[in-house]
Design a binder for these strands. Structure first.
Length: 577
DNA sequence: CTAGGGTTAG
């Protein structure tokens, strides 16, 4: 088998070695080798009678076999309650299993509340339970709770992040607890601190606590996510030099990173390399590739390379799916969500809905994210009624809407002039004790501005800090635009200044919005000054701003020198000599 | 039965 894959990938690499280009170049040609790899890979598995990738789940989880499949929080609670009512009370093990299932559903607070319920019922936690709990506290950014669970090594409120973690790691190192150290890395990275993570990696090495594969994978993935792919690849080389062999997770992280940068050649090389090491792409890897190909409009090329672009049909898309399905284990609910999202983004809602319907027939459960995707698709098409129906349906199926679901629907309502329904929905989500975030308020502020209720928008905007929320650049931009529409350019400019003082300085959008505002309100002098400022800061006029300026120039209302300023900015470096 | 990779919002 290995030989076959080796030969197909080698052929794939050899077949189009000259069509690579760096980032920013036409993509349709540049990733064709990747597509050839995929086609060969699928073709190979298609010809195999049995599953090539052995499922590890058959070797594990004897206990969980007796538990019903948990696909939503409601199920989890009922299974938990039934387990709690058993006589005699079972050991902690099945409870741990339930907690793990809930962790997989990412309902971390629910895990903690179930854990508390266990305590009240007299079930003693074990090491596994505590690990699960620590993991949840990390996900919830509750570092203090994690530390308490770990055994009160430290008091709460320690500020210096690196030294805190160092201290923790040192104490773990005494016990040779590499796993926990890895967890701390994970948390640090969640805070966006790659360099601190690498520093800690070095500390581990100094202490002769050899970082293992998980530690490296965690950091490599974080670097890849931040598109620091060169650093990720360096660490990748380093781990191999130190005798730590990469696995599928390492490769998937790296492939994700290079694909994000459009480095198709590198992606193909990595795919080739992993297969040559007897590490096979799994459903995660394919989902990354599927996502990337979809985003690049490569779906049609994946199926048949000589068809017209932009003619993706359901038939053709299904062909890819069937190809993946022929592998038996390659398509899961994630894969469906990704493909459905692709169709939604292409505004092909019929196809998206068909796929959604198809899932249950395959025993796959559409989750909150899947529904969010189709609700968004409907909203963006202006099909609010359909979106609302899906919103009801998901709840009927036991998939609870989250903040993102509400954001999607709220935005759809606001943009389709149904402000009062939006406000009703907002009240509903408040009632559900969902954590209303800045995205939600930004949507509402924009909705109010669209409805010309500038005063209400302003009240909402000013009330953000009392809710403990910080407006970001997008919130400011929307409010500035609203104020300009309301003719309140003076106040809009004050907000622009306020942005400077806060952590979010004005971006290109901010300038375009306010410049348009000044021009539309016949304050050309002020507009001129801001155009100057915008250009100085390296931002440029967008199409509609340029149009307004050209219009002014035509009416001879401004200094003609202005045009060259705009033009120079737009064509800098590209003017033919 | 513990850690690490894939999907969604303004």
């Amino acid at each position: 088998m290995l030989k076959m894959i080796k030969s197909t990938t080698a052929a794939a690499v050899a077949s189009s070695s000259s069509c690579w280009s760096r980032r920013g170049m036409p993509r349709l040609h540049s990733n064709s080798t990747l597509v050839v790899f995929l086609n060969n890979y699928f073709a190979f598995f298609h010809s195999q009678p049995s599953k090539p990738i052995k499922s590890r789940s058959t070797q594990l989880k004897q206990l969980v076999r007796d538990l019903p499949n948990i696909t939503n929080l409601g199920d989890a609670f009922s299974v938990f309650d039934r387990t709690l009512q058993m006589h005699p009370l079972p050991s902690v093990a099945p409870f741990n299993q339930i907690l793990i299932q809930v962790v997989k559903l990412k309902h971390y607070s629910a895990v903690i509340s179930l854990y508390n319920q266990m305590g009240m019922s007299g079930i003693e936690p074990d090491g596994y339970t505590l690990n699960i709990l620590i993991n949840c506290h990390w996900h919830l950014n509750q570092m203090g709770f994690s530390l308490t669970v770990l055994g009160n090594f430290f008091k709460l409120g320690l500020k210096p992040i690196v030294s805190t973690f160092n201290a923790l790691i040192n104490s773990f190192l005494l016990e040779n607890r590499v796993a926990e150290a890895a967890g701390i890395f994970n948390k640090m990275i969640a805070g966006g601190n790659n360099s601190a993570a690498i520093q800690l990696l070095r500390k581990m090495e100094e202490r002769a606590c050899k970082p293992n594969l998980v530690v490296y994978n965690t950091i490599i993935d974080s670097l890849s996510k931040d598109t620091l792919v060169d650093d990720a690849l360096n660490l990748f080389s380093e781990m191999m030099c130190k005798g730590v062999a990469p696995d599928g997770i390492t490769y998937t992280s790296l492939i994700h990173g290079v694909c994000k940068l459009g480095e198709w050649k590198e992606a193909t090389r990595l795919l080739h390399e992993m297969v040559s090491k007897n590490i096979y792409p799994d459903v995660h890897t394919f989902n990354v590739l599927g996502m990337v190909l979809e985003a690049e409009g490569m779906v049609e090329i994946m199926i048949q390379r000589d068809i017209e672009p932009n003619t993706v049909t359901m038939d053709k898309a299904k062909k890819v799916f069937e190809l993946m399905l022929s592998n038996g284990s390659v398509v899961d609910a994630f894969s469906y969500s990704i493909l459905i999202n692709g169709f939604c983004k292409q505004k092909m809602m019929d196809e998206a809905m068909m796929l959604l319907g198809e899932m249950s027939g395959k025993g796959l459960v559409p989750n909150t994210v899947t529904y969010n995707t189709v609700v968004d698709g409907c909203c963006k098409m202006g099909k609010i009624r359909d979106a609302q129906q899906l919103f009801s349906k998901m709840q009927a199926c036991g998939q609870l809407p989250n903040v993102q679901t509400y954001a999607i629907l709220l935005d759809g309502l606001c943009k389709n002039r149904q402000l009062s329904t939006a406000i009703q929905l907002f009240r509903e989500m408040e009632g559900k004790k969902l954590d209303v975030n800045i995205v939600i308020y930004t949507i509402l502020i924009e909705g109010l501005c669209i409805a010309r209720k500038i005063e209400s928008a302003r009240v909402l905007f000013r009330g953000l800090s009392s809710k403990g929320l910080q407006p970001n650049a997008r919130t400011y931009n929307i409010m500035i635009k609203g104020l300009c529409i309301g003719g309140l350019t003076c106040e809009a400019e004050k907000l622009l200044t306020e942005m400077e003082e806060k952590v979010c300085s004005p971006d290109g959008y901010s300038y375009n919005i306010i410049i348009q505002g000044f021009i539309n309100n016949n304050e050309t002098d002020r507009a001129m000054e801001l155009i100057q400022q915008m250009v100085e800061r390296g931002f440029s006029a967008d199409a509609s701003t340029t149009e307004l300026i050209v219009d002014l120039l035509c009416k001879d209302e401004v200094d003609p020198a202005l045009f060259s300023l705009i033009q120079k900015e737009n064509y800098e470096g590209n003017l033919p000599l």
